[in-house]
Amino acid sequence: MRRWLLWFLLAPHTFLVFGLWRDVGLPAVDASVLLCVHLAFFAQRGAVPWLLLGAAIGRAIVDEAALPVQILVLGVPVAVLLPLRTFFFGQRWLWQAIAAAACAVAVPRLAGLFGRLFDQPSASSSLDALAVLQAAVLVPPFLWLLRRLPPFAGFEERT
């Protein structure tokens, strides 16, 4: 119960924390990509739907589109990557970098697609090549750190 409370209290603010990180001039890390890779590769499978809800609430705070659109934008990459977890488990850093780059392309594309479909466009739908590169380089070390901190540590799938 405590870990769920911590998740819904802290995880939505991941977007704001990484926004502050960017605002002070450090290389930007897309919290959407970070959460997608965490949910796809490291979170307990049974908990993923509700963890996704917490992440989507955080994205709904900083993005123009509504909460269900955020669930789809974050949930579709996770749904694609999650069944691949079994195969990609051994070479974590490489797969994490590839998955982060893929998510950095997929998330804005999906935001644009769902924005058009459901008439909820948002500024986050623009794709930036630099952001893809930064995601590939920075997401794995940040994930390594976050997985050792609450609330992420509480939902780590044990191997």
Binding site: R45, P49, P68, V69, I71, L72, G75, T86, F118
Partner: peptide, 26 residues
């Protein structure tokens, strides 16, 4: 390596379906 059934995230698919229902009945 852990073979943790089920391989396919049925709960996650359910959440995505719920999001579509949400958008249909805002």
């Amino acid at each position: 390596m852990r073979h943790d059934p089920p391989a396919f995230p049925v709960g996650l698919y359910g959440m995505l379906l719920f999001a579509l229902c949400w958008l249909t009945l805002p």
